[in-house]
Design a binder for these strands. Structure first.
Length: 426
DNA sequence: TCTGGGGTCCTAGGACCC
DNA sequence: TCTGGGGTCCTAGGACCC
């Protein structure tokens, strides 16, 4: 059977978090703006103006804070309720433009556009529509493989003459080669810092070098992932569209603390709270977990670098917060050591399967499980309606002064009625 | 003083089996 | 004295992604 040549479009929102902030706060337009990670720790999104004054991606706030005075840099805390809501709106809109969509991340979608030879034209319309309806700038890369679509998207973003749309398959071999030669191998999707360094040792510096390398040999030398990347650069699709409705295989919740934490009691509060958060995600997926992992660690930058993790197996898979919290605390007590200044803790649920398909154990009487299901539903419904934390477990603690910092946060413009923007008229 | 959070996939190596 | 080889499953750790 003859293989149909596929075509993938990668649509990506430019500087997504910053762009979301700008939609509701036009004063940020045209200025150097960054959005910070949780705890106001480091830079996770930058406006073009912020890039121009030299703010690096991932830079800790304290290293760029001098730019606030010197260059008028504006730093916003992250507001994930806002970004999540804006993301859902963008993704819905994008989905209307192609027969298949894979939501790849909060700000990116792959679209399968094989039967649409003129998709570059459609992409321009799409770009205008998203800008008009949602106020967000996007870029589109189109190519016969996902890896090349990602790459083209990146080029469309950094080359202003392209107006945010590049169809790799129509530019001709000469331009393709020139483009790949100008691109460091590190910028190829799937090549991280570690690989890039090893590539450099054997003379592979650019995307072009990588494409021209011996795929078989590279596969043996590194991994099948590398081999696939090389084939994808040559235009042979190896990475399929994934259906985004599949349940996650692991669910975690972790946070850095707003202050130093040393006592077991504080860690217990934090771990309880993270376990509850993970359980909510688990129930939203309609899944159950059979394993609970807990990790604690000190700052990676401190002299006392210490981390520990442990997991406990559950007798039967569950989504019951009470049971999961109990086991998370058991795991915590196993791994806790005194004498360290902890900076972060996390809970990870593993061995996940769907609620329907789970094994009912003889140790888990059906009526008990039904009772807990009803209770969890009531808890989620109440917390969903009145806000997280309306109902909580005593072991979560009440003060929670270890909680993270978030000092420059914008309102939940689109997801909380009391914070909706007001329009004033004269 | 101050450095995120949440995922996925692959591989190597050990345990175990026949 | 002589002491296999191959398959499978599981886990920990590494690398990558946004």
């Amino acid at each position: 059977m003859e293989k149909i040549i596929e075509k993938y479009a990668l649509v990506d929102c430019n500087n997504f978090y910053v762009s979301c902030e700008r939609v509701f706060n036009p004063k940020l337009v045209g200025k150097p703006v960054v959005v910070l990670s949780n705890n106001d720790g480091c830079v996770v999104s930058r406006s073009n103006e912020a890039k121009e004054i030299g703010v690096a991606m991932g830079a800790p706030l304290f290293k760029v804070s001098h730019l606030i005075k010197e260059k008028g840099l504006i730093a916003q805390s992250s507001n994930y309720a806002l970004y999540g809501d804006m993301s859902a709106r963008v993704m819905k809109l994008l989905g209307e433009y192609a027969p298949r969509q894979e939501v790849y991340s909060i700000d990116e979608s792959f679209l399968l556009v094989g039967g649409m030879p003129e998709f570059a034209t459609t992409a321009k319309v799409l770009k205008e529509t998203v800008q008009k309806c949602l106020g967000l700038p996007i870029c589109v890369g189109i190519a016969p493989t996902k890896t090349l679509a990602k790459l083209s998207n990146g080029v469309s973003k950094s080359t202003s003459i392209l107006n945010g749309v590049l169809d790799y398959s129509v530019i001709g071999e000469l331009k393709q080669n020139r483009l790949l030669k100008a691109l460091p191998a590190k910028n190829v999707w799937g090549v991280g810092g570690k690989l890039a360094e090893k590539f450099s040792n054997i003379g592979i510096e650019t995307a072009y070098d990588l494409r021209e390398s011996n795929a078989e040999q590279m596969g043996k030398l590194f991994s099948v992932v590398v081999k696939r990347t090389i084939l994808e650069l040559r235009g042979t699709a190896c990475i399929d569209m994934e259906s985004s409705d599949e349940a996650r295989k692991s669910i975690g919740s972790s946070r850095s603390f707003g202050r130093a934490v040393t006592s077991l009691e504080d860690l217990e509060e934090a771990v309880t709270s993270y376990a509850l958060k993970a359980c909510e995600k688990l129930r939203r997926d309609n899944s159950v977990a059979a394993e609970v992992q807990v990790m604690v660690r000190t700052s990676a930058y401190s002299d006392d670098s210490f981390s520990n993790a442990g997991s406990v197996a559950l007798q039967c898979p569950t989504d019951d917060s009470m049971i999961i919290v109990k086991h998370a605390l058991l795991a915590l007590r196993q791994i806790y050591q005194t004498g360290h200044t902890y900076q972060k803790a996390g809970v990870m649920l593993g061995k996940i399967c769907s609620r329907e398909g789970r094994q009912i154990s003889i140790f888990d009487p059906v009526n008990a499980s039904e009772k807990s299901t009803k209770m969890m539903q009531a808890m989620d419904a109440t917390n969903g309606k009145w806000g997280r934390g309306t109902i909580f477990l005593a072991s979560e603690g009440i003060g929670q002064d270890w909680k993270m910092k978030s000092e420059h946060k914008s309102p939940a413009y689109t997801s909380n009625w009391s914070e909706i923007p007001r329009v004033k008229s004269l």
